[in-house]
Computed example of a mutant assay.
Amino acid sequence: MSRDVSGKRFQNRGTMSAIPGRFDVRIVETEDDFHSVSSPDTEVRYEYAKTLITSNQSPDVPFRLSVNPYRGCEHGCIYCFARPTHAYLDLSPGIDFETRLTAKINAPEIFEKELRNPNYQCQPIALGINTDAYQPIEKELKLTQKLLNIAYEYKQPISLITKSSLILRDIDLLQSMASEHLVHVGVSLTTLDNDLSRRLEPRAVPGSVRLKMIRALRERNIPVTVMIAPVIPFINDHEMETLIQASVEAGAERVGYVMLRLPHEVAPLFEDWLNIHFPLRAERVLSHLRSMHGGQLYQGGFGKRMTGSGVYADFIRQRFHLARRKSGGDRRESGILDSSHFRLPPRCGEQIALF
């Protein structure tokens, strides 16, 4: 795989590289030293999707159906496992992933059409799994809000995961859905160190704001699970117990974790990030990542890709379970989604609308 080694450092962005995708034949090589340049503006392209609801058979995730209204994510998290999907668009999984975004502008219409398909069998749908459904462009486009309104009208259960405080814009709607067991919210929490957050997730809100989000959601009886993700050796792993305790105190009913994943282009992007921000720790971090994946930086096999294996992975797993047990972060009081009330609301011109 070719890669951009130009050494550019974009301000307020997660990546320093315009690394080509794995299907790209271009090679960009210069000998410039690292230098800071102005951050590229965010570009949004509108796409008219033919389908929206997708399915997967992965045993590692607790859902089969998902919906993603956006491609790419302006949050710019350097570790994002979805970065390689930009290669399918002939765009860089590096800087393009966080600056050249796609909005499925007809997502609400397609979503409703698919819910009304006679062959559709209702089950929970995960919203915004590949990229955050509440990333900054959602404030203007409101695709996620429209999808939630449709889901509520059809009594279609939805699970969300976000790191954006924009979710609080829709808190009244989410409260109504939660009262009928139609929504569950996941909040991803990486660190409470603001400096580290700015480096890892430059355009996402800091951990302290996410804890306030959890409190606000729980005050409205909206079920919340916190994912400590990703756990990175010698970068944020020392915060695990603190993050778990803070999440439970904020109201999270359940807490989980995911180890750092480095599929495809994410690996060289993360290596570059490490060498710039933590050069003295870089080899130690990478060595421990390899120890969890059979000598490689990543193995994508089911069962271990989220947690890894080996001595260090076992150590993290034991710490996590002990801390969660002490904090009470494994309650199952609510959050079970109910698919039994799914319905097709009558539409103008349908005979049922006459009654």
Rank of each mutant, 00 (worst) to 15 (best):
G308F: 07
I336K: 11
L147P: 07
T191V: 06
L65N: 06
P202F: 04
I316D: 00
A82C: 06
G256N: 05
I150L: 11
E140Q: 13
N12A: 10
S55W: 04
L211C: 03
R218P: 01
D237V: 05
L262C: 02
N56I: 12
G76Y: 09
G294C: 11
V209D: 06
L182Y: 03
R281G: 01
S38L: 13
Q11E: 11
Q11T: 08
V209N: 00
Q135I: 05
L127P: 06
Q123K: 14
E98I: 07
D132R: 09
C348H: 11
E29K: 13
N12H: 09
H181D: 14
M227D: 05
F10C: 00
Q318A: 15
S339C: 10
P206T: 00
R22W: 06
I167H: 01
Y88A: 15
Q299Y: 00
V44M: 09
D338N: 14
G328F: 10
N194Y: 02
Y48R: 15
S58K: 09
E74V: 10
V25K: 06
S287P: 10
I336W: 08
I95Y: 06
S188W: 01
D32W: 07
N275D: 10
Y88V: 07
D195H: 12
R290L: 11
Y48S: 14
D60W: 03
A204G: 07
K113E: 08
I336E: 12
R3V: 10
M1C: 09
I244T: 03
M227S: 10
Y70A: 05
A267F: 09
I352V: 15
K212H: 10
G76D: 07
H288D: 10
H238A: 14
S55F: 03
S208E: 14
R203V: 00
L101A: 05
T307S: 13
Y154S: 03
S6K: 12
A229V: 04
S6F: 02
P118I: 13
L262H: 04
L196H: 07
V209S: 05
V248F: 06
Q245E: 15
G303H: 05
Q121H: 14
I232R: 05
I222T: 00
K212Q: 14
I19L: 06
E29C: 10
Y48L: 15
T131V: 12
T99H: 12
D90G: 03
T102I: 15
P118T: 12
I150H: 00
V258S: 08
D41S: 11
S164C: 03
L337R: 07
I53Q: 01
Y154C: 07
F81Y: 13
F278T: 01
L337I: 08
I336M: 08
D193Q: 07
Q57V: 11
S2A: 11
Y48I: 14
L200A: 05
P202R: 10
M292Q: 13
L160Q: 03
A103R: 06
Q121S: 14
E219H: 09
N12T: 05
L141Q: 06
P233T: 12
D24F: 00
T242F: 02
R9L: 15
S159T: 07
Y88R: 14
A323Y: 02
T191D: 09
L196M: 12
